[in-house]
């Protein structure tokens, strides 16, 4: 009977345990070396065999049960302990980390390059300081040609000039290679012009493909693919006849305004179309300048402004933003 009372007592006391120190006190009180249960167990040896057996079993069961409960209780308390109020201001923001980032123009150049790399075009580069010959004459723009007015040129005091377009790369690439060839040439170009639409330094990508059969229809195909890869699958394109001294026939490609979807808006000047690039079949005079056999080879070339593409893609109105390099501007192209 005594054991029943003891058990009740023990469980009642157990239920009152609230923290680790009370738990420890409880353990010492009952299960410690001098604990109540321990001392009962020690006294068993003084009892007659029968009694020792039954009481012993009960006491041992009680002890095991208690140990099990204590273990559970301890885990419970430990969990609770970690949920306590820590007096930390959780309203603080996270510690900011600045991601590194490429300049938006680099991103666009990379994106456009990848499109042509997928089509097997090789990326080439060339000098930014050019001779009159490579920049104009070899491209069928002799000295007296009024087409020189289309590109306000920066001249250097040593007689050279800053390339006004990436087209000299056509000449250099053809001289360094034998046909067939497929190249793109991204890079900086320069024109004396500065306002919100023109920067004295900007970027272009030149493309050139020379092969035996490559045709005007193929040019349309490549450019359409390019436009839809760059501006989205549903992008509309249109081709207008144009004039560049180094291509014949020449064309300009417009894309359906990405803002108004060819309905006409402020961005496209109400026309519904945005001018994207110039292109054409390589002029025989250009092939002559690099000694390619015009009875065998023909090809197309195209050139486009990177800033123009970036401005359309990101709806940027002022070209100068690209070269002011404001932290927040650069940071917004992640």
């Amino acid at each position: 009977m005594e054991i029943e009372k003891l058990r009740e007592e023990i469980f009642e006391e157990f239920s009152l345990i609230k923290n680790l120190s009370e738990l420890e006190a409880f353990r010492v009180k009952y299960l410690g070396k001098k604990g109540l249960l321990t001392s009962y167990l020690k006294e068993l040896k003084n009892l007659p065999l029968e009694e020792r057996k039954s009481l012993g079993r009960e006491l041992n069961e009680l002890k095991e049960k208690l140990e099990e409960l204590l273990k559970q209780k301890e885990r419970e308390i430990l969990f609770q302990e970690e949920d306590r109020e820590l007096e930390i201001d959780l309203t603080l923001t996270g510690k900011k980390r600045d991601l590194g980032n490429l300049h938006p123009l680099t991103q666009v150049i990379e994106e456009l390059s990848q499109i042509f790399i997928r089509l097997g075009f090789e990326v080439v580069t060339g000098p930014e300081i050019e001779s009159d010959y490579y920049n104009f004459t070899a491209l069928n723009i002799p000295e007296w040609h009024p087409a020189r007015d289309m590109q306000a040129t920066f001249y250097l005091k040593n007689g050279a000039l800053l390339r006004t377009h990436t087209s000299p790369m056509q000449i250099r690439a053809m001289l360094e290679r034998t046909p067939p060839l497929r190249i793109i040439a991204p890079g900086k170009v320069y024109r004396c012009d500065a306002d919100i639409r023109h920067s004295p330094m900007f970027h272009q990508i030149e493309g050139l493909m020379v092969d035996e059969e490559v045709s005007f229809s193929d040019l349309k195909g490549i450019l359409t693919y390019f436009a839809q890869e760059t501006f989205g699958e549903k992008t509309k394109v249109r081709f207008r006849p144009s004039y560049f001294p180094f291509t014949e026939p020449s064309l300009e490609m417009d894309i359906g305004c990405v803002i108004c979807e060819t309905k006409g808006c402020r961005v496209c000047g109400g026309s519904g179309w945005l001018e994207i690039l110039g292109a054409g079949m390589v002029h025989p005079e250009v092939f002559k300048a690099v000694n390619y056999d015009i009875s065998k080879w023909q090809g197309f070339a195209f050139g486009l402004g990177i800033e123009r593409v970036a401005m359309i893609k990101y709806e940027i109105e002022d070209i100068r933003l690209f070269f002011e390099n404001h932290f927040l501007f650069l940071n917004s192209f992640k």
Binding site: M209, S215, D218, K220, G221, E248
Partner: peptide, 25 residues
């Protein structure tokens, strides 16, 4: 050729992709 294409209409010229020898670098 440009005159013919222009007067015929650039828009009416088909859109194809070039056939070429694979050459990669």
């Amino acid at each position: 050729i440009e005159e013919i294409a222009r007067i015929y209409g650039y828009e009416k010229i088909p859109i194809t992709l070039p056939k070429s020898v694979l050459k990669a670098k």
